[in-house]
Design a protein around this nucleic acid. Sequence first.
DNA 1: AACAATACATGCGTGGCGCATATACTAACC
DNA 2: GGTTAGTATATGCGCCACGCATGTATTGTT
Lengths: 119, 119
Amino acid sequence: MDRDRGIDKYLPLRRVEFHILLSLVAGERHGYGIIQEIEARGETSVPDVGTMYRALARMAESGLIEAAPRRPAPDTGDERRNYYRITALGRRVARAEAQRLELLTQAARLGGLLPKEVK
Amino acid sequence: MDRDRGIDKYLPLRRVEFHILLSLVAGERHGYGIIQEIEARGETSVPDVGTMYRALARMAESGLIEAAPRRPAPDTGDERRNYYRITALGRRVARAEAQRLELLTQAARLGGLLPKEVK
DNA sequence: AACAATACATGCGTGGCGCATATACTAACC
DNA sequence: GGTTAGTATATGCGCCACGCATGTATTGTT
């Protein structure tokens, strides 16, 4: 497809990178908050803080995310926080990666690793 | 759960490792054949041969897979091929990883990265 | 006979990641 | 008000997974 030009070089995403994009599609977040969100989601292995902050810097550099002006909600917030938001490019990449994961999941289901859809 | 004891240290799996287990649940395979299967599945980024053979050695060492006696089908086959099969441990780990991926996929769907289930 | 595809192996360099540590602000508790 | 735990970011260190390149040898095709 034409609109997907260039996203291939970002795929497959690092695990922490997909976690980050997945958090940011719901709104602006700061690094520490993303980690807490991953924990809350029930992930077995949560990325290290070092991994997180370096990934944020890396992704801002490459254009998947961008620094947001402080304070997404003016009421609460620690002045130390660095907020990020997802870019249009980041959203396209995240979508492509999500499709990849869905294909993998379907393959796992066909292989009997997951129960057949019973819903 | 009690039966899942010990599998956490294998999670999350490397990408190539999940690909390998996913291929082996369908039957015995050899390294080069697994790569071809991944290509055929339509994966955008296929693991390098170096990554593949090293991963196979590593996983056989750690007990996720095991070397199979040559020739799963006695008729065809290149004498050079090294066949592997998945172990009971490998199957448990693959199942856990598949569940992890499914959760991620669901989260992506909730975030609007994937279309709502319309089937 | 020549060449492409198959099949496995390994040295090399890069980079992602966990671990540890440093710094500093916020909140809670007695 | 002083100690302690939680919040928040940053960075050096070392390991090792991975892609890349190369080597070797067999099988299949033209």
